[in-house]
């Protein structure tokens, strides 16, 4: 079967690949670009472990075709830290013990980063509903929610200081 040539951008880097029309963006990220931070927990958009951003919009990469990436900008977990400098969310997740096995962590970080960019002052309920599509089986979500709320508070006070 003939493959489709796709030109796109991943974490700001120009990327080209060939893919089968049936391959998802998740398949392409993992198997062709070897960016394995996005995980396949279900393949049906129910678990959020494959969360990425598509032109800044949070999506499940298992529900986007690789071919659809043409001309768009993809953001993955691998692009969240600035070199060795962790994003405040990444730092807080470690500090708050907000991960156990860590398989859902990349998806949850991509999702919460998108949340805080849209809503810097979310309530606990807002965080919980925003993350309803990111399943975690280890933590009971408690420490995840605390880490997100704490990061949001820190970022807000940083912003205040800056202004």
């Amino acid at each position: 079967m003939s493959k489709i040539h796709v030109t796109t951008s991943v974490n700001g880097d120009a990327v080209e690949f060939l893919c089968d029309p049936r391959e998802t963006l998740l398949d392409v990220l993992r198997d062709r670009l070897h960016l394995t931070g996005a995980k396949e927990g279900c393949g049906t958009g129910d678990c959020g472990a494959c969360s990425v951003t598509l032109d800044g919009r949070l999506v499940c990469s298992c529900l986007v075709l690789g071919a659809e990436a043409e001309g768009h900008e993809i953001g993955t977990i691998e692009g969240i830290a600035n070199g060795e400098e962790l994003h405040p969310l990444q730092q807080k997740f470690i500090e708050h013990a907000a991960l156990q096995c860590g398989i859902c962590t990349p998806g949850i970080l991509v999702a919460t980063k998108a949340l805080l960019e849209k809503n810097p002052d979310p309530t606990e309920t807002e965080v919980r509903y925003w993350l309803a599509g990111n399943l975690c089986r280890c933590t009971g979500y408690d420490k995840i929610i605390r880490a997100v709320m704490d990061t949001a508070a820190d970022l807000r006070s940083d912003m205040k200081e800056a202004t």
Binding site: T36, G37, T76, I80, F93, P106
Partner: peptide, 21 residues
Amino acid sequence: PDRPDGVDKVTGRAKFGADAY
């Protein structure tokens, strides 16, 4: 204290079962 595998797991570097080639 912070877990030793923390950075790997928050950056997507940690290698799980399906991450081997």
